[in-house]
Structures are given as C-alpha cells and as structure tokens.
Simulated assay, not measured.
Amino acid sequence: MYYALLTLFVIVAVLLIILALLQKGRGDVGAAFGGGMGQSIFGAGGVDTILTKATYWLGGIFLVLAVLLSIVPKGEKGSILEKELNEGKTAPAKPSGGAQERRGTDTGTPSQEKAR
C-alpha cells in the first residue's frame, strides 16, 4: 500500500511540475504596484483555464497523498512499542565479570578452575 501511494505521489508531483511550467505567465510583478486599470496580481478577470483547474486538483491530490504517506506504515507490522519491548527480551544482558576475568589472570581457587 505504501509503495503504491509513493508511486502515485511521484507521478502527481511530476504532472504538477509539468502543468505549472505549461501555464502562461500572469504578467510582471510590477503590475501589482500600479499596473493597468482593473488588473490585479493574478491578471484581469478571473478566467480559469483547463490547465489552471487541473493544477488546483493536482495540488489538492498532492497534499492528500503527502498526508496519507505520513500516516500509512511502510509495511512493518506491529507497533513501535512492541518492537522496543521485544528487543529488550531478545538481547540478554551479559553478566559483568570481575576485574580478574577481564584481565585474563587466573587467581581463583582450584575448585573454580575445575569448573571452567
């Protein structure tokens, strides 16, 4: 499920980039600071072309897919808490030996040497 959503996410992102690059520019930024009469920064009127509407829809789909990708797990089953608890059980703690065992010297009693 995760990888299907990720593939769709990448396709939508590429299509969104292509659609944004295909659209005609809306004029200079300077038009917003005293350009022609009746024009705004987004152009005269409010005519939405097919490309603009498709960009809006793809942008919405892009945002929804981004949220879904953050929610859907990558395919690992179980909770994070259970994994952390299981890791503690599978790795037994090593008994800490005395300083003599770490140095490798043999200063134990003869009965302890036979047990080794």
Rank of each mutant, 00 (worst) to 15 (best):
G45C: 02
G45L: 00
G46L: 00
G46K: 05
V47A: 09
D48T: 04
T49V: 01
I50H: 06
L51H: 02
L51C: 00
A54D: 03
A54H: 00
T55N: 09
T55D: 09
T55W: 04
T55Q: 10
Y56A: 09
Y56M: 10
W57G: 04
W57F: 11
G59H: 03
G59K: 00
G60S: 05
F62A: 03
L63D: 05
V64K: 02
A66V: 01
A66R: 00
V67P: 02
L68C: 07
S70R: 14
I71H: 02
V72K: 03
V72E: 05
K74N: 12
K74C: 05
G75M: 05
G75W: 02
E76Y: 08
E76S: 12
E76L: 13
K77D: 09
K77Q: 12
G78Q: 07
I80T: 15
I80Y: 11
L81K: 15
E82V: 06
K83D: 11
K83P: 01
K83L: 07
E84D: 11
E84K: 14
N86F: 08
N86S: 11
E87R: 09
E87K: 07
G88H: 11
K89Y: 06
T90S: 12
T90Q: 14
T90A: 14
P92M: 03
P92G: 03
K94M: 09
K94T: 10
P95S: 09
S96F: 05
S96W: 06
G97C: 04
Q100R: 15
R102C: 08
R103S: 15
G104P: 03
T105D: 15
T107A: 13
G108F: 08
T109D: 14
S111H: 08
S111T: 10
Q112H: 09
E113S: 09
E113H: 13
E113P: 01
